[in-house]
Design a binder for these strands. Structure first.
Length: 272
DNA sequence: ACGGATGTTCGCGC
DNA sequence: CGCGCGAACATCCG
């Protein structure tokens, strides 16, 4: 599920489901999801609280409840927030790792089969100051991409540009799918050293990210259930997970390589 | 049955 | 210090 657009979708869902509706019960078994052991505080602190607002910083969600109760949520690889309406009779969500029963009779669950995601309870006022939040670079959607600043950051590293884009300190929210797609749109080879990129190429990358995120955000709630469970949805991406298929631009078979520790598809002819 | 998967973090070696 | 690599985390899907 979760790169910037999918996390944005989660933020919007949580706002719609939780804002202004009091929590009546909170459940949170001790699992790896609560790395810091705050599941008991979660269960004790949330009943009676009402969500005031949700912020997204890159792939991180910050939930601000009244009474200075805050929750940090990172979806990891397979985490998602789902709503469950008991009257509908549908089965309880699978792999629920935390739940909030609400005053309107619905419940909101954090589900995460692999438990790479994370929840942590904090004082709401301190959420923005947590080290893992402060360490994040600019958010390409919320803050916009400053091409000059991105060029400067990339110029400082010999790493592959794809690996640098996955570094959350450089831009917060870019993951393997969107880095792959943006570099294709920019016609830049994913293995190029960051410091080898011209200002013009970095501008194309910034544009590629903007366009890729805009397309994904426009699909929110539409066909973007790609890789979620349930109904199979066609891969909506141009080259992600399409190695061996023809390049959409030149028809040459797309290549595959491991860059920055992650599988990358690219066109060896179009991406220089 | 095997291999790989949207993410992050750690240790090791150069 | 920077960086690549492999492993780990735990489960599902083709």
């Amino acid at each position: 599920m979760p790169e910037l657009p999918e996390v944005e979708h989660a933020a919007r869902s949580l706002r719609a489901w939780l804002t202004g509706v009091a929590v009546v019960r909170a459940g949170a078994p001790a699992t790896r999801v609560f790395r810091d052991g705050s599941n008991r505080t979660f269960q004790r602190s949330l009943p009676g609280r009402t969500l005031a607002r949700v912020e997204r910083r890159g792939k991180v969600l910050l939930l601000f409840f009244d009474g200075d109760v805050g929750v940090l949520s990172h979806l990891g690889m397979t985490g998602k927030w789902v709503r469950h309406q008991p009257p509908s009779g549908d089965p309880a969500p699978r792999h629920s790792r935390a739940s909030l029963a609400l005053a309107d009779g619905s419940a909101v669950h954090y589900c995460d089969p692999r438990m790479f995601g994370r929840l942590a309870l904090h004082r709401a006022a301190e959420l923005p100051d947590l080290p893992e939040v402060r360490a994040l670079g600019p958010d390409p959607v919320a803050d916009g991409i400053d091409a000059a600043a991105l060029h400067a950051a990339l110029s400082r590293t010999a790493r592959a540009v794809k690996a640098a884009l996955l570094d959350q300190k450089i831009l917060a929210g870019v993951g393997n799918i969107y880095a792959t797609e943006a570099l294709f749109r920019a016609r830049v080879h994913p293995a190029r050293a960051g410091r080898s990129l011209s200002r013009r190429e970095v501008e194309r990358i910034a544009r590629g990210l903007d366009d890729t995120f805009a397309d994904a955000l426009a699909r929110l709630g539409g066909d973007m259930a790609y890789l979620s469970d349930g109904a199979h949805v066609e891969n909506p991406f141009a080259i992600y997970d399409r190695a061996g298929e023809p390049c959409p631009s030149c028809r040459r078979a797309l290549s595959k390589a491991t860059i920055g520790g992650r599988t990358s598809a690219f066109c060896a002819r179009c991406q220089k």
